[in-house]
Design a binder for these strands. Structure first.
Length: 421
DNA sequence: ATCTGGCTCTACAATGGAAA
DNA sequence: TTTCCATTGTAGAGCCAGAT
């Protein structure tokens, strides 16, 4: 089964996959947006080196994912909030985003794209993002879409270094969209309140849509918006990408303000610190304090309540079963590939946008420096029992994320070591 | 009360064999 | 040989029950 061509075969499959993907996936704005985002990060970091480059990059990766999410926005799923001024929101956690900033919760289901379409884009976008980033850093490595069971292949043809990686990418948050609107009444002419929620409006096409970026005013986070763009028609599939590109070009303050919000959200991303902008982050859990009007979960006869965002939507590589899956993948790829690596310096690792913010300690800390080997005698108990030339392997050559990484390999450190990790 | 993980549903991509 | 289609595998996320 496993032979000396295992790595070579997968590498060849990966190459052809990439070409095919480039052909079929034809979004002309994707590369442009990624390039602009990364260039802006370098500019900001150069102007203020106290801002860590990796975190900046991670925050703009969220913007990239968001641009993709926005491209699915249609007529359905806008939430009507009447106070203090009538407004429509298209949001990504299950509550009114503007009231959540003050820890007041009005339930309304998030309008996320179908999970089936999210999965493939996040993984593709992270590969594309890293590709541009490595070019920017002057690296010659190529990033390829892997073939099962490998998510991503990173290869340096000259030095024969090759990484098979497991990708786990998921955004910290997606900014809500906002539109102004008239005060609405129900069929009987009665005013609609926050509790009534869940309205479907007639059309969003060609209307001004704004981006909801909370702003810190005298110590509290307040609603604030940037003019964003509009979707011309159903066929206008990439309007999200176009609008982010235009906003970056138009308003120099946007990215810095967005970053300071995003960074604060990441710094306070902990289930014990449930305040304000926390409720816009993924996997933030149940509302606290839970208001009287907060609904029980659907079909629930028991004590279950709806959440603002379920733990299944965890950030980066933080979801526990994803971490476990990742550990299995590096073990599997490593144990099959490393002993037969031939001319390749074969490395394995996990690649993500954001490190395991909540679960690193419990799930990865004790494993991060593990090494392993094959022992067919079953009698080796210490290194000295083995032949001095007996090979040992890293469990992880790298646990890599834009925000924080752990390296056990010099090559990977050169490729991915950013200034802040 | 919260976290975790099993089960479920959905979307999508890859595969491989049969039909054209 | 190419095209079609059923099957299989993977991932994200909702729901729920059991553990802590």
């Amino acid at each position: 089964m496993i032979d000396n061509n295992w790595i070579e075969d997968l590498l060849n499959k990966s190459k052809s996959n990439t070409k095919k993907e480039e052909k079929e996936h034809n979004n002309p704005l994707e590369y442009k947006l990624i390039t602009n985002l990364i260039d802006e990060c370098y500019k900001i970091h150069k102007g203020d080196t106290l801002i860590p480059l990796g975190k900046l990059l991670a925050s703009t990766f969220d913007l990239l994912i968001s641009a993709d999410y926005y491209s699915y926005v249609g007529h359905k799923g806008w939430y009507y909030c009447p106070t203090p001024t009538p407004s429509l929101y298209y949001h990504f956690t299950n509550c009114c985003p503007r009231h959540a900033l003050g820890n007041i919760f009005y339930f309304h289901p998030a309008s996320k794209p179908e999970s089936g379409s999210i999965g493939k884009s996040t993984s593709r976008l992270l590969r594309a993002f890293l590709n541009v980033l490595l070019k920017k850093r002057g690296r010659s490595e190529r990033i390829l879409k892997g073939a099962e069971p490998v998510d991503v292949v990173i290869v340096n043809e000259e030095t024969h270094c090759i990484l098979f990686g497991e990708i786990k990418a998921s955004p910290l948050l997606t900014l809500p969209l906002q539109m102004a609107c008239e005060k609405l009444t129900d069929d009987g002419g009665k005013e609609i309140t926050e509790h009534d929620g869940n309205l479907t409006i007639n059309t969003i096409f060609n209307q001004q849509i704004n981006l909801f970026v909370p702003k810190l005013v005298e110590g509290s986070w307040c609603e604030s918006q940037y003019p964003f763009g509009n979707r011309a028609a159903l066929s206008d599939k990439y309007w999200g990408y176009r609008s982010v590109i235009e906003l970056l070009a138009k308003d120099a303050s946007f990215l810095k303000n967005y970053y300071s919000f995003w960074n604060e959200a990441l710094n306070k991303y902990h289930p014990k610190l449930t305040n304000s902008i926390y409720w816009l982050t993924n996997a933030c859990g149940s509302p606290s304090p839970r208001p009287d009007w907060w609904p029980k979960s659907k079909g629930g006869d028991g004590a279950g309540f709806e959440s603002v965002s379920d733990s299944k939507t965890s950030v980066g590589v933080d979801r526990t079963d994803d971490i476990k899956k990742g550990i299995y993948q590096v073990l599997k790829l490593g144990s099959e590939g490393k002993p037969v690596a031939s001319k390749w310096k074969f490395k394995v690792g996990i690649i993500s946008n954001i490190h395991a913010a909540r679960h690193f300690e419990e799930y990865l800390e004790s494993l991060k420096n593990l090494i392993w080997t094959h022992d067919t005698t079953g009698k080796a108990h210490k290194a000295g029992d083995l032949n001095p030339e007996h090979p040992l392997y890293n469990l992880f050559d790298g646990i890599i994320a834009l925000t924080e990484s752990h390296f056990r390999d010099e090559w990977l450190k050169e490729v991915f070591g950013l200034e802040n990790n």
